[in-house]
């Protein structure tokens, strides 16, 4: 049966070794994220936010527990299947933009569509549409080093959304931007989220933007202190 939740975590534990010491990054996390929501995960440094985001992004595996994303149990997928799953279902927006320096704006945005083998005509239409939507018209041929921080993050947002994934993960996407640009980017993300009917999952420690969230989860010492009741 299809769920209304895009993300479901059941009893997730994640620990790793730091020298001889075992670090318990996440301890029995249970939570769900609703489809098409604008959800925030907040917490102090070292609380486990990024670990949680990596698990949701299917780029890391839990030590224990099960994860369901977009009705797929990702624990059962092998590496290639996980890659294909990420390519079709998840968009990433990074704090440092992580654009390909050898590709121009158009090519960076087009890249996720190449990975899912979309035909050229469809690719062109989608990329041109989203370039307009994020306000990058006229900058198609520029490479990332020729863009400002705000412009780069717009490219990253366009890249994350171009293949219309069910879930977009943003890891402190405004941390490297000034306040004016941050506001513009956040405004763009809310607009795009509504337009593309995508679920946005934010990791941040910026208290000023909490009012934008549909739902907020707080992480402290590897445990969720809010939102736990949703899964029960």
């Amino acid at each position: 049966m299809k769920s209304d939740n895009i993300v479901t975590f059941k009893n997730i534990h994640k620990s790793y070794l730091l020298g001889e010491h075992e670090i318990k990054a996440l301890q029995g996390i249970n939570f769900c994220v609703k489809k098409e929501s604008f959800t925030f995960i907040v917490g102090k440094s070292g609380s486990g936010k990024s670990t949680l985001l990596n698990l949701i992004g299917a780029i890391d595996t839990p030590t224990k527990g099960s994860i369901m994303i977009n009705n797929t149990s990702i624990d059962e997928l092998n590496d290639d299947e996980l890659s294909d799953f990420r390519a079709s279902n998840i968009g990433h927006i990074f704090q440092n933009f992580n654009l390909m320096p050898v590709l121009n704006v158009y090519e960076n945005i087009e890249y996720p569509l190449l990975m899912i083998n979309q035909p050229k005509e469809q690719r062109e239409a989608k990329v041109n549409e989203i370039i307009k939507a994020v306000g990058l018209d006229g900058l198609e041929k520029h490479i990332p080093s020729e863009l400002s921080g705000g412009q780069r993050q717009r490219v990253a947002i366009a890249r994350a959304l171009v293949n219309e994934p069910a879930l977009v993960l943003a890891d402190e996407p405004t941390a490297n931007l000034d306040s004016v640009t941050s506001a513009e980017i956040l405004s763009l993300m809310t607009k795009m989220q509504k337009e593309y009917k995508t679920t946005f999952l934010f990791v941040t420690h910026d208290a000023d933007i909490m009012h934008m969230a549909d739902e907020i989860f707080v992480l402290k010492d590897g445990k969720l202190t809010r939102g736990e009741e949703d899964v029960k």
């Binding site: 780029i59 890659s83 998840i90 390909m100 890249y111 996720p112 990975m115």
Partner: peptide, 15 residues
């Protein structure tokens, strides 16, 4: 970092 980014976007190991 680029390798990590491409892999997180869905590029397979073979890619």
């Amino acid at each position: 970092n680029e390798i990590g980014t491409l892999r997180s976007m869905g590029l397979r190991r073979a890619g």
